[in-house]
Write a protein that binds this DNA or RNA. Sequence first.
DNA 1: GAGCACTGC
Length: 672
Amino acid sequence: MSQFWKPGTERPRIVDDEEGGVLLYPTSSSSSSGFGYGSLEKQRQRLPVYKYRTAILYSVETHATTIVVGETGSGKTTQIPQYLKEAGWAEGGRMIACTQPRRLAVQAVSTRVAEEMDVKLGEEVGYTIRFEDITNEELTRVKFLTDGVLLREMMDDPLLSKYSVIMVDEAHERSLSTDILLGLLKKIQRRRPELRIIISSATIEAKSMAAFFNTRRRREQEQGPTKEPAILSVEGRGFNVEIFYVEEPVSDYVRVAVSTVMSIHDQERMGDILVFLTGQDDIDAAIQLLTEESQSSGKQGLVSVPLYSGLPRADQDLVFSPSPRGKRKVIFSTNIAETSLTLEISDIENLVVAPISKASARQRAGRAGRVRPGKCYRLYTEDYFANEMSVVGIPEIQRSNLVSCVIQLKALGIDNILGFDWPASPSPESMIRALEVLYSLGVLDDDAKLTSPTGFQVAEIPLDPLISKMILASCELGCSEEIITIAAVLSIQSIWIPVRGVQKQLDEAKLRFAAAEGDHVTFLNVYKGFIKSNKSSKWCHKNFINYHAMRKVIEVREQLKRITQRLGIGLESCEGDIQAVRKAVTTGFFANAARLEPFSHNGMYKTVRTSQEVYIHPSSVLFRVNPKFIVYHSLVSTDRQYMRNVITIDPSWLMEAAPHFYQKQLDSSIPQ
DNA sequence: GAGCACTGC
């Protein structure tokens, strides 16, 4: 272990934090630097984080865990891994890892760092995301990756032994995999005292994060780094954002949003406006309203641009194009603009409308102050912000289906799932529900251990366990070629072009592919057509199919092909034997069986398991067809519970697929 | 006759 500490530099001042943490202050802003003086180097030194270089390295040297509280623009993500490298943490064949919640960020940051270090991306600096491993086993010393990929790596190397330092960036977003990762890293630390962890967090969460990682017991003689985490604050570089609230709560917020835009346009100097709305409908309504109002009042100089994920890529790019001369751009966006995109637009004025967490509100306001001071108009009262809004959003782990998460932990050998130490604990009920599902799938046995081979195989496939089970079943039924296509389609959002106003044409296009057996088989027809067209984008356009989605389908399908091969499962086509396909789907999704209510005039179904009232989603090819027995892929609840993506089945297959699960129902409710 | 968004392996 190289205990590297730059000699000749002054030790940073350490001050005890009032709650037991340790705060480090930099001693001087110009620390020793032996680097060259290229312009990139100069830029690096101008970043706020540079002042803390010494303090960060000292903290990492002496503490098992360092929590870095940093605002956007501090440069921590790109600089800290380089500091670690310069300080010798990547010597002796070891690696420095830096995780991000999103793939785009991984690519962007690693590209930037490779540039700054003047190395070729994929050599000393590399990255790994799903579908792309741009690293070199011998050369790569600094590796950027999504936290999901790092979790997968743990399946082969549970102690992550090749890494000397792991930096978990954007931990405050509390994504599902970040939380799992943090829980597991805490466990690894116990076995690997030499491992260093850096967590970048928001101010409000730093203390609870420090408490979570504080494994130091009283009177314990410490060897090596102290187990009490250090907290370090690095200021950002944002500009001031002035905040305004409405005086009275508003009822029609779309209308108020639009009139606020108009008055900003009237009274403020030039600069673009970013408006956050809840969804596509409101965005469309707002744009229409703004167009009408500016026309009727004779106002000019406003250009509205919508921004949401369903929008074709080219339309999304409009957001980044500069506003026409003398015009003010108004971007109406979903929360996609909150984190996922860095809007490199200068001169943004900001307008927030939805009930969100305070943390989210701050993040949104921050979008306005990136390039120059901005203003933020919140369409709720200050009182509401102070007293009604929660401090942070609920971590994903406390509001998600834990089936995938449980199986991942099981695969990593964590037996006592209920006793696992999380940064935020999910409810025991949701845990138990997940365990029940996995048991019924035959993935876990009576002792809640992974079954062999099914359990281990399901864990190996990076998809929802229900889908993985369906894939395994398809191998036995001789239709794995077809089923991995279906699995790939189900794992992306939608293969149809998101429509506004061309609903009828889309429905007609769908009919060209529609299969009597249901949506899954329809997907097979679409895929076949796409391949036959030579993966043509023109063909997609003609048939109202999302070309980019189909490219993704191909990608996911290729990955699934590789995985099934690795599992020693052959690919086989059933050559049109659709019954095999339906059986395979049933084997994974038997728990989602529903039966048409006899004499139902409005297409009401009841789930076989819980007699819950459900309906076929109008987007399904089986909408209004209403076959007697179906299984669905997922439920969406609005005013009714809608089943999305359904396929017809024979009820006797349910018994075959899950005898223990359907024993009781078979006796009573399923007619033969 | 559809009714939140986003992310990840």
